[in-house]
């Protein structure tokens, strides 16, 4: 992630350790999100998950995606989540049943997803070729911007239109009288 002065000739240090550390943290906190009874604790675990995923993005040489992940999800969306959850009556929410009893659909969905993961693990080499870093890391962010406003202009605009529709929909639903 550094430019110029120091790290261009230095190899990455302890990559394997950081990979397993961050993915372990992501999985552990992901499990905590669904097993905690207190919604505030769940939200905090989700924040930890998002942060460790941001760390994984950094390890994949995608500093811009990592930064945006933290600013948008951790700094924006989760703050709003927490804002709402903090007003929830904790005593009542802790007496709620935590899991609904739909075991059969749950098991089927888990099996399907597991099969998908196994398939990707077995055949993944052919489906996704080994990524090669084609651009210097320092230009990474600039290149993302270039691509977004040249080659991928149309999908980018479509996405922003979708967001606009979502905003208007939210306002219409939230306001009784417009």
């Amino acid at each position: 992630m550094c430019t110029g002065w120091y790290t261009s000739d230095m190899a990455p240090v302890a990559t394997t350790f950081f990979f397993y550390f961050l993915s372990g943290l992501a999985i552990l906190s992901g499990v905590l999100v669904i097993t905690r009874k207190n919604p505030v604790h769940s939200a905090l675990a989700l924040i930890l998950t998002l942060l460790s995923v941001a760390g994984l993005y950094l390890m994949l040489y995608a500093p811009f995606v990592a930064g945006v992940q933290i600013i948008l999800y951790v700094g924006g969306i989760m703050v709003l989540f927490l804002f709402v959850i903090m007003l929830v009556n904790i005593e009542r929410s802790e007496r709620e049943k935590q899991f609904n009893q739909q075991w059969l659909p749950g098991i089927l969905a888990a099996c399907g997803l597991g099969l998908l993961f196994v398939l990707i693990y077995v055949k993944g080499k052919a489906l996704f070729s080994q990524p090669v870093i084609t651009m210097p890391e320092t230009e990474n962010t600039q290149r993302v911007g270039m691509m977004l406003y040249s080659n991928y202009m149309f999908p980018f605009e479509i996405a922003s239109l979708l967001l606009l529709v979502a905003i208007i929909g939210a306002v219409v639903m939230a306001k009784k009288r417009i």
């Binding site: 430019t3 500093p63 930064g67 933290i70 700094g75 703050v79 927490l82 903090m86 320092t138 962010t141």
Partner: peptide, 26 residues
């Protein structure tokens, strides 16, 4: 350290800083 996303780092870290205040309140 001179990061090529230095400004994003500052924005990200300050946005995490909100949690200190929000969680203290809760």
């Amino acid at each position: 350290t001179d990061l090529n996303i230095g400004l994003l780092v500052i924005l990200g870290v300050t946005s995490i800083g909100v949690y200190g205040v929000a969680l203290a309140g809760w």
